[in-house]
Nucleic acid binder design. Structure first.
Lengths: 279, 279
DNA sequence: GGCGGCGATACCCGGCGGGTATCGCCGGCT
DNA sequence: AGCCGGCGATACCCGCCGGGTATCGCCGCC
């Protein structure tokens, strides 16, 4: 199976429409129909049910969509990492959520830079839930993730730190006089709903809170009295004077981990992980 | 990057010889040279150093060899799993080392078969260290692995059982009168060296013991008085009357786990894992 | 200095990936 | 009922690329 065929199939399977898929791929519709038909013939199973008015995935088609995306990611990763393997380029790309890992990241970079044989580390900041994808398709080599929010499925992992969480409120809110709160106190604050973060697919869950996708948005909404948030303790240094944080006694602890694709064998990566675990 | 190019490059990188690689691929040498040259041009980095008398991998070439193998496995896996996704075929392929998981496997298969919605499970028995490969390239969906011997890098895992180890000796050996032994007692038994198993690459480590690759071989060698072995307790039912087992007090415990590729989303797999964890 | 091995180059052919034009089918609108 | 429009399949054509053979250029070694 050639990657072109796989890309074509994924496009059709996502659009469920040959015409749109062809436009997305920058080709005409007939060659696309042919390519899919040949792919089905070669694999020996039917992937799409074309009945009049529309296209639907067969069971096998759903499997190929899933597995094919992973395979295309792996091929892309191979190409990207190869392109970056020429001497002189930054040796490692580290990705983490923008605004997270406040103090940890500079400490880690300093500690690693002091190691013998350290290479240049490029830092990539991404949105919620994007790290795993970046690791899988080769745009990044290593990530800082936060359990239990991020998935570590299929990644190798070392734990770095564990911390409690705090609730972030507008300065002057009545509850800010308390020294400790419980989840029940903040899960349904009148007028201060918890925000909704986008899922891995970019869509927002249903609920009362405002939609946010970065911490700047979030902090502004809290300062305006439109939301509250439950965040790891390490967010405290980022809060302006218009925000206040109160510890949560019973919130789940947040574990920061360093994660990388399991087949990685690069020496610089090993060095970075070693530096991280020694912090 | 097309999978054909990737296959060609991997062949050349493994053979370090265009002629042999071309023969292995079933094509002539000139098209292979051209394909590699175009691949290098398109990626924009040089992958091979051709000096007179031979070919060597560049740094980037080594990266592409590594990542490319993983990518080719992923593509193969996509195709194989798709081909198997047509109704009527065995729904799951389970792989384990031949001779291991003695009692556990039938119990697991029975328990799963009793579940509602259970599908047919094909059992594949393979040699040491092959399971991970079979999972990655789609020939299997789920594996029984034994920690700390097998690597679970990049796999999702549930622990099933933990057991101690025993030393297997020829019946009548003086030590078989003891009720318990320590590793130090058996690590250097005169005339009964521990055997050497092949590594993931199919080669054997250096050492005094005989080379073995399955348990039948091993048991026969022990019965002949040429070797001894340290194995999990569950091997006891497989031993004939010409072999004896003595518990080892300080051997590392062996944990049997059920493992699967982390991106799997299949319902039958979930059912099998559930059945396994409930055993 | 000739020979042999190896990768690169030159050149040719057929198939496949791409295009345009058109068909066949079906659902919906009038 | 009949026409129209949307959509995937089919027919047909072209140019490139993947494959082949023949040969060259380079180098190490008798």
């Amino acid at each position: 199976m050639e990657t072109r065929e796989l890309r074509y199939f994924v496009a059709v399977a996502e659009e469920l429409h040959f015409g749109r898929a062809a436009r997305r791929l920058g080709i005409a519709q007939p060659p696309l129909s042919r390519a899919i038909a040949r792919l089905e013939r070669r694999i020996g199973v039917s992937l799409l049910d074309r009945d009049s008015r529309g296209v639907a995935l067969t069971e096998a088609g759903a499997v190929l969509l899933h597995e094919g995306r992973a395979a295309l990611d792996a091929v892309e990763a191979a190409e990207r990492r190869t392109r970056r393997a020429v001497p002189g380029k930054p040796g490692l790309v580290l990705v983490t959520k923008a605004g997270a890992a406040g103090e940890l990241l500079p400490k880690l970079l300093d500690a690693y830079a002091a190691e013998p044989g350290a290479v240049e580390v490029e830092v990539l900041l991404c949105g919620v839930g994007e790290q795993e994808r970046l690791l899988r398709d080769g745009r990044a080599d290593v990530a800082l993730l936060h359990l239990p929010f991020d998935s570590t499925a299929g990644l190798d992992v070392e734990e770095l730190t564990t911390e409690g969480q705090v609730v972030v409120l507008p300065a002057g809110h009545p509850l800010t006089t308390r020294t400790s709160l419980r989840m029940a106190d903040v899960s349904a604050l009148p007028g201060l709903p918890l925000p909704r973060w986008p899922g891995a697919d970019g869509t927002y869950p249903d609920g009362p809170g405002p939609e946010v996708h970065d911490s700047t948005q979030l902090f502004q909404l809290i300062a305006l009295g439109r939301a509250s948030a439950v965040l790891p303790e390490s967010c405290r240094p980022m809060l302006g004077h218009d925000l206040a944080a109160v510890p949560l006694a019973d919130a789940p602890h947040v574990t920061t981990v360093i994660a990388w694709p399991p087949h990685s064998r690069s020496l610089p990566l090993a060095g970075l992980v070693r530096a991280a675990t020694r912090l």
